[in-house]
Simulated scan of single mutants.
Amino acid sequence: MPDSRTLTDPAPYDALLLLSFGGPEGPEDVVPFLENVTRGRGIPKERLAEVGKHYFLFGGVSPINEQNRELLAALREDFSGHGLDLPVYWGNRNWAPYLVDTLREMASDGHRRIAVLATSAYAGYSGCRQYRENLADALATLAEEGLPELRVDKLRHFYNHPGFVQPMIDATLAALAELPTAVRDRAHLAFTTHSIPEAMAETSGAPQDPARGRPGGAYVAQHLDVARLIAAAVEEATGVADRPWELVYQSRSGAPHVPWLEPDICDHLESLHTAGVPAAVMVPIGFVSDHMEVKYDLDTEAVAKAAELGLPVARAATVGADARFAAAVRELLLERAAVERGLPVERRALGGLGPSHDVCAVACCPNPRAPRRAAAEI
């Protein structure tokens, strides 16, 4: 069975779409951007301005668009360096370049079969199905405009691909090296990801228990698998056995009465301090790049909490445009292309969960507000 690293033929695909969240690129963009993100929820503009204070602290600019430009360049460089003549486009869910505009451009350029990389590594409504819903909406718009029919296939979840995990291992070791030598070997690891409602976490992913007849539990299970991989690699590299670690959460945005995944990173740091832990490393395994939720919730809020407690902390870098991640995207694309041609191929994955599915089940990661909303069947 061929290894995905040896594949070279992208057929049937004639283009790759990098699909991301989007973010404001100036103060005047902040409220319109947040209106896009919260559309249909009836949130007053005054409240959005208050929520937008995180962006205003950074000049109204989210780092995510520039980081996607860097990833776009890394993908094009990797493709070119490996003789893969496949154009790479970029579209966003909530800000320019908008997804529908990019798909319109791709159709006009003659592309018809498109592979899609969403910049979210894990199963879940916001990280997977919502992107599929956005694709369905955009494709419907293009059909109404009379443009040629496009087929889009979203590449599988990449949370446990070596090209995503290995850079995070290196980043964790680099962050540990930033701590004072006296506390380095006793530092705890706090693996962080976006908190989501418990009900949403419960229904995330493909069905895992046929007796239940419904999906569930993939969001947390996948993060825990990645955390174990990194913790084991760090133990091997440092020689420090049984270093304590925990999966914690950040960036909660829901109503107080709705249960969300916990503990919050700031609460966790306080617990570590109370328990006499001398230092901690925050490892944002839930995020592909150092966007606003990393820069504010970790680098600003969590670092301020640690300083208040007198707890030394370091923050591991995200994968970003690491060349190994760009290579992983190429592998995932060529792997899926081989599958579409009916060829056997090794699907690389680390940890205990194995490679993710290619095509999402109909009941996968249901929309909590509109269960019947159409999603692209990809």
Rank of each mutant, 00 (worst) to 15 (best):
G81I: 07
S356F: 07
M106E: 04
K154R: 14
A279Q: 11
A107D: 02
N134S: 15
H291F: 13
D29W: 02
D78K: 05
V329R: 00
L343R: 14
G254D: 15
E178L: 12
S289N: 14
A374Q: 04
V277S: 13
F58R: 11
L17V: 09
P97G: 07
A328F: 01
R348T: 08
G352H: 01
L155I: 07
Y219D: 02
L176K: 00
Y13F: 15
P259K: 13
A316F: 03
D14C: 11
Q222I: 10
D297A: 10
D267A: 15
E50R: 12
L332A: 06
G217K: 02
R113L: 05
A323S: 14
D29I: 06
C360D: 07
Y13W: 11
G320W: 08
L333C: 08
V30W: 01
P180K: 08
N94I: 05
E335K: 03
M1T: 15
V345C: 02
I169P: 00
L57R: 14
A328T: 03
V30Q: 03
I230D: 07
A96V: 12
T6M: 13
P87K: 09
D14V: 11
L17Y: 04
R76M: 08
D153S: 14
A232W: 11
T203D: 04
A370P: 00
V100Y: 03
V277R: 14
P10F: 04
G52Q: 01
A363D: 14
V220G: 00
R228S: 10
G146Q: 07
H111T: 04
L176H: 00
L311Q: 03
T102A: 08
A375G: 08
G354M: 02
S4Y: 07
G146F: 05
P148V: 09
Y125W: 14
L86P: 00
G352Y: 01
N36I: 06
S62N: 09
A177R: 06
V100H: 08
R347T: 06
D290K: 06
H257G: 11
E70N: 15
A233V: 03
E105R: 15
R47T: 10
G310S: 11
P97H: 04
